[in-house]
Design a binder for these strands. Structure first.
Lengths: 191, 191
DNA sequence: CACAAAAATGAATCTATGGTAATAAATTAA
DNA sequence: TTAATTTATTACCATAGATTCATTTTTGTG
């Protein structure tokens, strides 16, 4: 059972020839809760597809503070886009918040895939368009919203799995402290 | 003289047949300083390429506050990505900060282009990768940096044309008030 | 279960940045 | 050039959210 192939097949038709090739380059891995999938000193250029479980990508400052870039569940991609697509050396880690199963694709293999199968390129181009819109929206949120409003937005955007994620990580996604988030939550219970 | 064609030709080879087709769908427009290129109630889905001058895209809240999403000069793209690529109705405007010359491509025409000429799709896919890395980087800046540090980053990222942009717009890009920016600048002169 | 570790909450300051308002400087228009 | 308008600066007070530190609650493990 390969959820990634299923995911592709939802949108593009895949010949058995392509399917075989894909199966060769897709690496399936499973992780336990808390396990690190990609560490911040890695130079690996990989695309990560989540089949099950919940993952988180985050940046860690010199003094140990963590900032969450993204959460991801079933059928989401999560990767270190700065390492993948720019020369900026980033220090992003990806960890598994729950037991998880992921499929990992090496950048080189994906690049080959684009060349050999234009349908993948089109597929990915559309994916990227969606991602750009999402990132843009997040930037606007960060610019315009208060802590409480950002939390609202988060609850809406991640309603599917908000409950799995510890509050201190939600706070690190919103750019606020766990204490602030706690205060906001308290306020809400009152009202 | 069509700078957009030159821009394409830097990366992909363009037959005279494609060139003709492109010339048909590329609309050249010039704007004076302060002119609005795309207004926030427009539903137009357009890609905008800057040939000369400096443009700015921004979001305006109900109470009139402006938040700058992006600046763009020569050979940059600037568009309302949320309108282009998601159903989220956004209220983004694009204005010309200087006299400018731009090329406008309708979304439909671009989509056709992808279908008919895979090289464009590949080209755009790579563009999008870069853009994703840039947006990711901005999100990290907004999450981790102080006002002063964000200003530093801005001066680095936009060093080419920092001087053209009024400070109150820089402030709106950083997510701070003009007064705060002024304070930061004063500090720097002192030191 | 019981203990240890991690996470969440709470309360008391502190501080960076916001808001307001007045003035000065710069730009634009006449 | 001058007047009008826009932008930038300054100062003073207000406040959202940070920081610090203690306490409680939850989660994980032998």
């Amino acid at each position: 059972m390969n959820e990634l192939l299923d995911y592709f097949k939802q949108t593009i038709s895949i010949s058995s020839e392509i399917e075989n090739k894909l199966s060769e380059v897709i690496k399936e891995k499973t992780f336990v809760k808390g396990e690190i999938i990609l560490s911040d000193n890695s130079i690996k250029k990989e695309h990560i597809f989540v089949a099950s479980g919940c993952l988180r990508s985050f940046y860690k400052t010199e003094n140990g503070k963590e900032y969450t870039i993204q959460f991801a569940i079933n059928n989401w991609w999560i990767s270190d886009y700065m390492t993948l697509y720019s020369d900026a050396k980033s220090s992003i880690s990806i960890e598994s918040l729950t037991p998880s199963k992921v499929f990992i694709l090496d950048k080189n293999n994906v690049d080959k895939l684009y060349k050999e199968h234009p349908a993948f390129e089109a597929f990915q181009r559309k994916n990227f368009e969606k991602r750009i819109a999402i990132l843009q929206k997040r930037i606007l949120s960060l610019l315009t919203l208060s802590a409480s409003e950002k939390y609202d937005q988060f609850l809406k955007d991640y309603s599917d799995f908000e409950k799995i994620i510890p509050n201190y990580q939600i706070a690190s996604y919103l750019g606020i402290t766990p204490q602030s988030l706690s205060r906001i939550r308290k306020e809400r219970i009152r009202n």
